Simulated scan of single mutants.
Amino acid sequence: MFTTEIEQIPERRTLWEQTAQRLQTLIANGTLAPGTRLTENALAEQMGVSRAPLREAIRHLINVGLLVSEPYKGVRVLELTREGLHQLYEYRTGIEQMAFRSLWPKRGARSFADLDHRQARLLEAIDDGDSALAIDRELELHQWCYELSGNTLLLDAWTRIKPHLRCYFVLHQRAHNRAGPARQSHDSYIEHAKGESLPAALDFIEAHMKQGFDQVIAHLR
């Protein structure tokens, strides 16, 4: 009971962090299209924030690679390319396999219950048809392995690519014409995460990351 109450306490974020999250959402849902150049004054007015937190948010999104700063040209939204998505796929597959190697001896009933809980929350979002929430919940499910690994460098790497994955998942939804992943798409992932064979889990991760990837690549113009 006490744990449940703790989990219900909302995460507190500074104004610039809230602004960065809103910008990520605008980029992910296509409101700020790839390649769009940002005008600080207009964006601050549109979002109803002062320029100071907006600058901090923009600086953060430049650091994580969602925005690109060009000398004498200003700031623009990152353009997703086939080459960039291939690099994202390879990098994400590699760090998730590393996380599984680290977490494997740390698994137990509590960690499995946590994974099941994350899966239930994802299914809830899918059933509700909430595409944005489904993306958040899918990221939350995959974050399980990085948290359990106990490797802070891996968790930091995951945190840095999450904004890119959020944009990728939006493309994935559009390419497959659905709100979020298919209901059964993570059943085998969870089965392997709880299984007895690490090599089988590592092989499956590579296959899982590849699901629908070619269709997303073909969807890019």
Rank of each mutant, 00 (worst) to 15 (best):
M1R: 07
F2D: 02
I6R: 14
E7F: 13
Q8S: 11
Q8D: 01
T19Q: 06
Q24D: 11
T25Q: 09
L26A: 12
I27N: 04
G35A: 03
G35I: 08
A44D: 11
E45Y: 05
E45I: 02
G48P: 02
A52F: 06
I58N: 00
R59C: 00
N63Q: 15
L66A: 10
V68P: 04
S69I: 02
V75M: 04
R82G: 07
G84A: 15
G84V: 06
Q87K: 08
L88A: 12
T93W: 01
I95N: 10
M98L: 08
A99M: 06
R101I: 06
S111Y: 02
A113I: 01
D116W: 03
Q119G: 05
D130A: 10
I135M: 09
R137H: 10
R137M: 08
E140D: 09
W144N: 00
S149P: 09
G150V: 11
N151Y: 02
T152L: 08
T152Q: 15
L154H: 04
R160S: 02
R166G: 01
C167V: 15
L171G: 04
H172Q: 14
A179Q: 05
G180W: 08
P181W: 05
E196Q: 05
H208Q: 05
H208D: 10
F213Q: 05
V216Q: 07
